[in-house]
Design a protein around this nucleic acid. Structure first.
Lengths: 342, 342
DNA sequence: AATAGTATTGCAAATGTTTTCATAAATTTG
DNA sequence: CAAATTTATGAAAACATTTGCAATACTATT
């Protein structure tokens, strides 16, 4: 039972089955208050019986919203972003939107391609991670007048509305924490900053903060590692076996910090007695490592949820007003850092 | 420059600008070989100048594929699935498809709702995680004749084509590894199995394998924890402080195993000397923990990539043929397990 | 009971594309 | 050079909806 013969079930099939006009069926969905309750019941029964499912493509063509939001992230499978995606997804789902997701692997040209693809699907908005995008992308967004949003980063100068944290501040907080604890020989492990403004902002702020206290980082104590525990571990192993080992490691994010922690353990160094380690991010799990990782907490869930909420508001509002939100950062001192002053 | 006045740019605007008919513009996109190269050039120039972007909604309405595939996962932000999502996304992207993503938090009714939502968007296929779905979902899929695929699990009896690993086997392999090492007092930490056939299959296979060797697990050595490092750590702490501590812990997955590892470290137990720990999954990072986690490797990337490839093939093929693929498992012995036989 | 509303429904046009069919132009063939 | 192909283009119908407008039926008012 259900699903009539082979034919497609569209709104006119339903109309026929309920002995009304297609317009009335359409109205039952879109303006139920305009149709007689009795008729509505008939129609719903027909819908049920035929297994009719609305066709958003047809609606979209008509100028209605598509009900989709495109999100383009650097990568999906790094703890960093998967939390934001989850929160964002849940949040827009509440407002009835579906998520189109794509990743570009830190390649801004691919990011452009993804945004284009989403525009073909007539998404109601595009959310991007970070503030650094190709000119082509920016042009595309303004030209097509598509609602756009930058997630994860916050900056006053952002051309796009944004919801996120100030990465300069994140870097500064991390540096200041170590400085306060008396560290002067500080090693730095950051990812490639090209096309990654998060990392870039953090790193430059770290240098600024250290510089203000007259601390400089020798070249052999500053190294690069991608956001991968194993590669960060390798990089940290190299750094920690240089002649004059630093007393603290400041890492571009928690994944790297975790790698550094494992490297230290591998070398038999006691953390935090022989070496302090601080990360940035406070990802799921950072609290649970042994010892618990000291880090600058970036509220990923908050950011994702807030971004989704504000963005859908923006999209559905008649007179949308611009917004940008700076989410608060916090230094979470756990067990991987300690004061040198003893 | 570019973007003419305020008006919408559609295919007829382009046609007008290039002084051809809309049909020709459409053909330029869909069957370029049928149109004169000179005309094509004119049209492309017009497209460029007007900033025209094709409208897939209109195409879809016409019966063309929407170019989207819906993927419904339990959660996005657990390492378990984020890797599969990443690989699947990349894989279908190569075939020109976009990913609609949703999560249901292990609630099969929400899964149904998500699938429905995707059908409204006229996705070209739906991929689900696992083999256990609500009747409503199964009915919906067959009724609507939508290509569907189960990812992550493999089973002969699956009503849906599937690409994944045999979780029974995974559980069995883990149990056998511990048995071979001589362990008889084995603790089990698994997530709630309700609505999670992966966990359920693994757990029942573990019991079977242990039972075959006459090993049984006392109630106080079998506990539940969700896929969360911190909660697993709590559960493990409780389990490890029972009067007669087991010599080995078999964990439902690597996240739990990692939590167990941290718990052991917190209690001052040496792994693997005082306690062996084995996980299931081999997630990113499992190799890098200190000590490296012994686990049953489930090739998430492979599964995601293969699933995407086969599924898009299936969808685009004229005479699609059914497929199901069982991905190989492997016991990766690292440093968290050791033999009791000394 | 006639008038003015109001509630309910249907008709038809519009949305942006693709594709079939027909036509015109160019090219090949005998 | 005429006939037969082939190539290139356009006209129009079709796809599944929504919505403004018009028509009808019903209710309330005097």
């Amino acid at each position: 039972m259900a699903n009539f013969q082979k034919g497609k079930v569209d709104i006119v099939a339903v109309a026929k089955a309920a002995k009304v006009s297609p317009s009335t069926v359409s109205r039952t969905f879109n303006h139920p208050d305009l149709v007689n309750p009795a008729t509505r019941k008939k129609i719903n029964k027909a819908v049920q019986r035929l297994g009719y499912i609305r066709n958003r493509a047809a609606q979209t063509m008509h100028g209605k919203r598509s009900g989709t939001i495109g999100l383009v992230v650097p990568t999906i499978n790094h703890a960093i972003f998967s939390e934001v995606i989850q929160a964002f997804s849940d949040s827009i789902d509440k407002a009835g939107f579906s998520l189109l997701l794509a990743s570009h692997g830190y390649d801004l040209d691919r990011e452009y391609a993804m945004v284009r693809k989403f525009l073909e699907h007539r998404v109601d908005g595009v959310a991007l991670v970070g503030l650094e995008h190709s000119d082509a992308t920016n042009r595309l967004i303004t030209q097509q007048k598509i609602p756009a949003l930058a997630i994860w980063n916050y900056s006053e100068e952002s051309p796009l509305p944004c919801v996120g944290a100030d990465n300069h501040l994140a870097g500064r907080l991390a540096a200041e924490h170590l400085l306060e604890l008396g560290h002067r020989d500080i090693g730095l492990i950051f990812p490639e900053t090209q096309g990654n403004d998060r990392a870039q902002h953090r790193l430059s702020a770290v240098h600024d903060a250290l510089g203000e206290q007259g601390v400089s980082v020798p070249d052999e104590h500053e190294t690069q590692a991608p956001y991968s525990v194993s590669q960060a571990k390798q990089a940290a192993l190299a750094l920690l076996t240089t002649p004059k080992r630093p007393t603290a490691l400041l890492c571009g994010n928690d994944v790297i910090a975790q790698g550094a922690l494992f490297a230290a353990q591998k070398l038999g160094l006691s953390v935090p007695d022989d070496l302090s380690i601080i990360g940035i991010g406070d990802f799921k799990g950072s609290a649970d490592v042994e010892p618990g990782l000291t880090t600058i907490r970036i509220p990923a869930e908050n950011i994702g949820a807030l971004a989704g909420e504000k963005f859908t508001d923006f999209i559905t509002s008649d007179d949308p007003e611009h917004f940008s939100i700076r989410c608060d950062l916090e230094c979470v001192a756990r067990q991987t850092t300690r004061s040198l002053a003893t």
